[in-house]
């Protein structure tokens, strides 16, 4: 008899309840699939929540065109393997205007290609609920988030205008044009996510595992040279180092860490000894203090 109900089982049951509420309460929900470890867990939970049916919503990836190539390969393979409806959105205006992380700076690039791109995609799809894999333990303003987080007509987050959220009874009502961001993994920690991946043997993007990769050192971070679009600054040179990534975003903006961890177990072991937070490698978080709260107000996930 399966009497052992672990804290991971409890988190899973809670997340599935949230996913089902979302599917039942909204007209056009969508799952924001960003390919990383959190998305991997989120997608697995969505498959489980509606089995034997497929999730009753599509997956959406907002592609900034600067993602690691391995991410894109993994994304397409995953959608195919699971037989789910994956949609990819690229901000074509941004692309035409030549926005990129170097010429425009990380801030403008993220704002145009990611935040604006996301808003475009949500508007075009007329999605009234966007499910994301953000966790409260990632960052201090996220720690204040609701599970069903209200956004106005302009996709803006107003921390003062959030609804009290009691028990697992969610207020899913919105007016035309308003929307809700849903975070089923709110109560998961980084360790919980890895543990779940390990326990369920879920495939992850190989970039999480250490391997010899070409990198340059820039502003104290190790940037992977994923293609020939990365302009080398004077004095920079490409070296091969054994590295892996704790979080995945646009490759020129994701700092790698030197590591020997080639297996999932080894990653977890390294994480247990880590002295810095997982988002530390995210260069965009550090543009200005209170940075995440501001980006969220503008509609960032």
């Amino acid at each position: 008899m399966a009497t052992e109900f672990t804290h991971l089982d409890e988190l899973e049951a809670e997340s599935i309840q949230i996913l089902r509420e979302t599917a039942a309460s909204f007209e056009r929900p969508v799952l924001m699939y960003s390919i990383g470890k959190d998305s991997t867990v989120l997608l697995h939970l969505a498959m489980k929540a509606f089995w034997p049916a497929k999730p009753p919503f599509p997956l959406l990836h907002v592609d900034t065109t600067w993602k690691f190539r391995e991410m894109i390969t993994f994304r397409d393979a995953t959608a195919k393997r699971l037989g789910v409806d994956l949609r990819v959105h690229i901000n074509q205006e941004g692309l035409a205007a030549g926005v990129n992380p170097f010429a425009s700076g990380s801030k403008v690039h993220t704002d145009v290609m990611k935040t604006q791109g996301l808003r475009q995609a949500l508007d075009q799809g007329r999605f009234d609920a966007a499910i994301g894999g953000a966790r409260r333990d990632e960052e201090k303003s996220r720690a204040k988030e609701r599970i069903f987080s209200f956004r106005d007509k302009h996709h803006r987050w107003d921390p003062k205008n959030q609804r009290p959220e009691l028990w697992n009874v969610f207020n899913t009502r919105v007016h035309q044009g308003e929307s809700i961001r849903v975070f089923p993994l709110s109560n998961w920690t980084e360790l919980d996510v890895w543990l779940y991946i390990w326990k369920n043997r879920l495939p992850v993007v190989p970039l999480y595992l250490a391997k010899a990769r070409p990198v340059v050192e820039r502003d104290g971070a190790l940037i992977m040279v994923d293609d020939d679009r990365l302009p080398l600054l004077p004095g920079e040179k490409v070296q091969t180092m054994k590295v892996r990534f704790r979080t995945l975003g646009c490759y020129p903006l994701s700092g790698a860490i030197e590591s020997e961890a080639e297996t999932l177990e080894a990653i977890i072991e390294e994480m247990l000894l880590a002295k810095t937070s997982e988002r530390q490698g995210r260069l965009i978080d550090h543009d200005s203090s209170g940075s995440m709260e501001e980006k969220k107000r503008e509609g960032y996930f």
């Binding site: 052992e4 672990t6 804290h7 991971l8 409890e10 543990l195 326990k199 177990e265 977890i268 072991e269």
Partner: peptide, 15 residues
Amino acid sequence: ERVDDYLRRYERNEL
């Protein structure tokens, strides 16, 4: 301790 054993131990933590 092996990672597997550690994870099994951690997983059984009460919430």
